[in-house]
Design a protein around this nucleic acid. Structure first.
Lengths: 236, 236
DNA sequence: ACCTGAACACCGTTCAAGT
DNA sequence: ACCTGAACACCGTTCAAGT
């Protein structure tokens, strides 16, 4: 029984390179795509590249996936399971914040996942526990189930937005001859129309780097919980 | 000489199909790209397509823009000016909310802009008044300038996230044979591990459609303003 | 059922050469 | 300075045919 479980669990990989190309199975295709994404990012993934690395023709892939977007979504499944599930505080507001931050910090290490998530689907079953915890904690804080879902969505937007623009910032930092726009585009003449921005221009980069998602999420959660925030969180 | 001036000022367009192609200028290139983006979206934009519509070779474009990303960023300039600037309430918290919503509603009508903004730069000078107003309103509500910038960034993440996933939802709705993942992936067996999600699965689509950015932003702003929210906003 | 070969209609960008 | 032609090294996807 131990062996059976072991064999069923083990991913196939390209163990036998000798014989003629074998029939490919969907999991090999998805796993290969996931490896390319992890190592080189979304821009490096092409159907032809996956086919080549799997040892088949591009068209063979279309027997297992509908199209490239479908393949991208399939690569998400199982990624949440690669990060251990943390211990969570019992107090619901703290639990809500802890899960939100766990979500953020996990994804910050998986830049390709952020790009694929923009396609908009929750496809990794192993990630649903985070949604469950956030919604559950919201309810425990006094929100209605519907409001807890709305709160989850808003928190997700904050997390996702931070990740997207953090990645954009990193890309820009890596390409040194990239043009800068804001705040460099501001001239002295703009100080009349845009006084605060003109005053802050010199500190903009510093403020961008200082941006602390954890702190901001704390404030956002306070707002989302509203009056429920001050409801008695009975200390035992 | 009159002809020379006429030719120089007037945007070229394809008025004269007869003669050999004229020298192209950057603004024509950018305007053509912007038209393609407006009419057909980011996926339809290619350097070759722009070159063809401008009446030149792909390589001529590289004399005016660094690369495709650069062209994309240049297309943003001037788009904010296409939406009239609204009257804003005087009360700072309401002004903050009104500008944030104006930002959202403007971009909801410009889906290609949302895609390009993911590149991460504020390139349209005509859009900066919104940042100025949000930061200014934050300061008027009692935030420090630094906290007002952080608040602006968090609000922007909420706005951007909503737009991205709203667009993804629309895309999915337009492709009827696209696979659905959540909540369809939930089985009865998941009700143990994911009780709230299982209970809410049937209402998920309804809750997604009901999501009201204005309402959520109101809560987020409350949280961001924190105690300053109740500070006296001296009426004179 | 699953896979292949060839083809269609494209990409972004470099390079050396022209005017 | 500005533009061109040809080339390089790719794309996603369709179709008809093979086993």
């Amino acid at each position: 029984m131990a062996e059976e479980a072991e064999g069923a669990e083990e991913p196939v990989k390209k163990k036998r390179g000798v014989g003629r190309p074998r029939r490919v199975d969907t999991e090999t295709i998805v796993a290969t795509a996931r490896r390319i994404l992890t190592e080189e990012g979304v821009a490096a993934l092409s159907m032809r590249r996956v086919a080549k690395e799997v040892g088949t023709t591009p068209m063979a892939l279309y027997h297992h996936v509908r199209d490239k977007d479908d393949l991208l979504m399939l690569t998400l499944s199982g990624t949440a399971a690669t990060t251990p599930r943390p211990e969570l505080p019992a107090e619901p507001r703290e639990r809500l914040l802890a899960v939100s931050l766990h979500m953020h910090d996990t994804l910050a290490r998986l830049p390709w996942v952020v790009e694929v998530l923009g396609l908009g689907d929750l496809t990794d079953k192993g990630a649903l526990w985070m949604v469950e915890e956030i919604v559950g904690a919201g309810i425990d804080c006094g929100l209605t189930p519907a409001d807890a879902v709305r709160a989850y969505r808003t928190i997700w937007h904050c997390v996702y937005g931070d990740l997207v623009f953090r990645q954009a910032m990193r890309r820009r930092a890596e390409d040194p001859d990239r043009k800068r726009y804001f705040p460099d585009m501001l001239t002295e003449a703009d100080a009349d129309e845009l006084p605060h921005l003109a005053a802050l221009a010199g500190r903009w980069d510093e403020l961008t780097e200082d941006y602390d998602v954890a702190h901001q999420l704390g404030a956002v959660v306070d707002g989302l919980l509203g009056r429920a925030e001050r409801a008695p969180t009975s200390p035992g």
